[in-house]
Design a protein around this nucleic acid. Structure first.
Length: 297
DNA sequence: GCGACAG
DNA sequence: ATCTTGTCGC
């Protein structure tokens, strides 16, 4: 294929416009965020959160969604629970899900939350003793346009303490990826070092955190629900073997692994091909080494 | 027109 | 989110 045709294809793909949201839906979602926000608790509510060594904390959770390359509708929703402080797997749950909402910055929760809540509810009804005492969420909490990101949303809907952890900076409320910001990143020396993400209002919405010794890029941590920012930072640091907090990292690794296994590159039509295998006995409830597994197509 | 846009 | 090989270093 000539370079010329390639450019033609590239420009076509790139011209695909981002989803345009109707004014109506925009208002509806904003008002839902505002009303859920009334139930948000942005301080420590648990005894273990006050403990310097988190004594009393035994289970930390992580959630994530993974996608197949050409398909932004079918995804694998994953919940893992790890032991604290060992970070050993205690429970994992994954499901293929069909998303109904598009990705729109500022409204990520409407796309992902329904499936994450379902996963938590399955655990709650089947093995409540394994419920995590806190959940690490892939996305922002209070560090958000309206101070109610995915981690807040999931926290309020489940009632569980949640921590928002974003891998990329969301430029919001006056916080920007400026030269100043880049300088502050360079000044982070040791694992655990932070600097505040301050809104133009003066409120600190979250903090940038150097989560491992050999990572140039910080994590953007903010309160999700029922935890203070300082505690969220301490715990995030405590749960990082690498840059990404272990619960989120495991959820990410395992959901991708699941997709690789059940939808190898080439099984195009996305999840439809796999649906036929649905009844073929692939339902994992059997535990091999004490780890509760709860996976199915 | 240019840049931003968590996942 | 996803694509993608090697490369440099411990």
């Amino acid at each position: 294929m000539g370079n010329w045709q390639l450019r033609q294809i590239i420009s076509y793909v790139q011209s695909k416009p981002r989803f345009e949201m109707s004014e109506e839906l925009h208002r509806q979602w904003e008002s839902e965020q505002a009303s859920l926000k009334l139930r948000l608790v942005d301080s420590d509510t648990e005894a273990w959160q006050r403990s310097p060594s988190f004594s009393g904390l035994q289970r930390v959770g992580g959630v994530d969604l993974s996608f197949i390359k050409g398909d932004d509708v079918n995804a694998c929703a994953q919940l893992v629970v790890l032991s604290y402080p060992e970070m050993e797997l205690l429970y994992e749950d994954c499901r293929m899900v069909t998303l109904s909402a598009p990705y729109i910055a500022g409204f990520l929760a409407f796309r992902e939350t329904p499936f994450l809540v379902e996963a938590v509810q399955r655990l709650e009804s089947e093995t409540p003793s394994l419920l995590p005492q806190v959940i690490f969420v892939d996305g922002n909490g209070l560090f958000h346009y309206r101070e109610f990101g995915l981690a807040c949303h999931l926290g309020v809907l489940t009632g569980l303490p949640c921590i928002g952890v974003a891998k990329n900076l969301l430029q919001v409320q006056g916080v920007e990826n400026s030269e100043r910001h880049k300088e502050q990143i360079k000044e982070l020396r040791n694992r655990g070092d932070t600097f505040p993400l301050e809104a133009s209002s003066g409120r600190v919405l979250g903090k940038a955190l150097k989560s491992s010794d050999r990572s140039t890029k910080p994590l953007y941590v903010s309160v999700g629900h029922r935890i203070s920012l300082d505690t969220a930072l301490r715990l995030t640091t405590a749960c990082c073997k690498y840059r990404i907090p272990e619960p989120i990292r495991q959820a990410d690794i395992r959901s991708r692994e699941y997709l690789r296994k059940h939808f190898p590159e080439g099984s195009e039509e996305g999840a439809t091909a796999g649906r036929e295998r649905e009844r073929d006995g692939l339902r994992g409830s059997g535990a091999s080494n004490g780890i509760k597994k709860n996976c199915s197509l």
